[in-house]
Simulated assay, not measured.
Amino acid sequence: MATLSLQQWEKQNEGITLFPAFTMEVTEPSVLAVYTHTHIREVLLQAFLGKSVLSEGATIVNGDPLKKRRSFTRDVGVCRIEDGLYERIRVRDQVRLFQQLYASSWSVNEMLSIVKLQERAHLSVKQLTYSEKQRLKLVRLCAQRAPLCVFEEPDQNVDLETRRIIARLFQRLQEEGSTVLVLTGNMESAVLLAENVYRLESSGLHLVETQTENEEGEEKEEQAAVEEKEPGLPFDKIPSRVNEKLILFHPTEIDFIESVQGEVHLHVQGETFPAVFTLTELEERLQPFGFFRCHRSYIVNLQNVREIMTWTRNSYTLVLNDASQAEIPLSKTKMAALKAMLGIK
Rank of each mutant, 00 (worst) to 15 (best):
T312S: 14
I299Q: 02
I308E: 13
R296S: 04
H295I: 02
K339W: 02
F292G: 04
T312D: 13
R306W: 10
I308T: 14
N321A: 13
E281L: 07
S331D: 01
R293G: 05
N304D: 05
R306F: 09
A337D: 15
V276N: 09
I308D: 08
S324M: 12
E281G: 09
R306H: 14
T312G: 12
Q287W: 10
S297N: 10
S297E: 04
E307D: 11
A340P: 01
F289G: 04
N301T: 00
L320W: 07
K332L: 11
H295L: 02
N301A: 05
S315A: 13
V300Q: 01
N301Q: 00
A337M: 09
T280V: 13
L318S: 05
L279R: 05
K332S: 12
V305R: 00
K334Y: 03
R296T: 11
Q325M: 07
E327S: 15
G290M: 13
Y316Q: 13
F289M: 06
V319I: 15
R306N: 10
I308N: 11
P288E: 13
R285K: 15
L330G: 00
A326M: 10
V319C: 11
L302R: 01
T312Y: 01
L320S: 11
I328F: 03
V300M: 01
L330Q: 01
L320H: 11
S331T: 04
E307P: 01
T312C: 03
R285C: 07
H295F: 00
I299R: 06
Y316C: 08
T310H: 11
Y298A: 09
L318K: 07
C294E: 05
F292A: 04
L320V: 01
L318P: 08
E307S: 11
T317H: 11
A340Q: 14
F273D: 06
F277I: 06
Q303A: 15
L318M: 11
T310Q: 15
W311Y: 08
R306S: 15
S331E: 02
I328P: 07
T317I: 13
A340H: 12
V300L: 01
N304R: 15
S331I: 00
E283H: 08
R306Q: 14
N301E: 01
E307T: 10
T310F: 08
P274I: 02
N301S: 06
E283D: 07
N314P: 04
F277Q: 14
V276M: 11
H295N: 03
F291E: 09
I328R: 05
L279Y: 02
N314M: 09
Q287S: 14
T280G: 12
L302P: 03
L279K: 06
R306Y: 12
I328C: 08
T312N: 11
V319E: 13
H295G: 04
T317Q: 14
N321L: 05
V300R: 01
C294L: 07
E281D: 11
A275M: 02
K332A: 12
M335L: 15
N314C: 07
T310D: 11
V319P: 06
W311L: 15
N301R: 02
A340I: 10
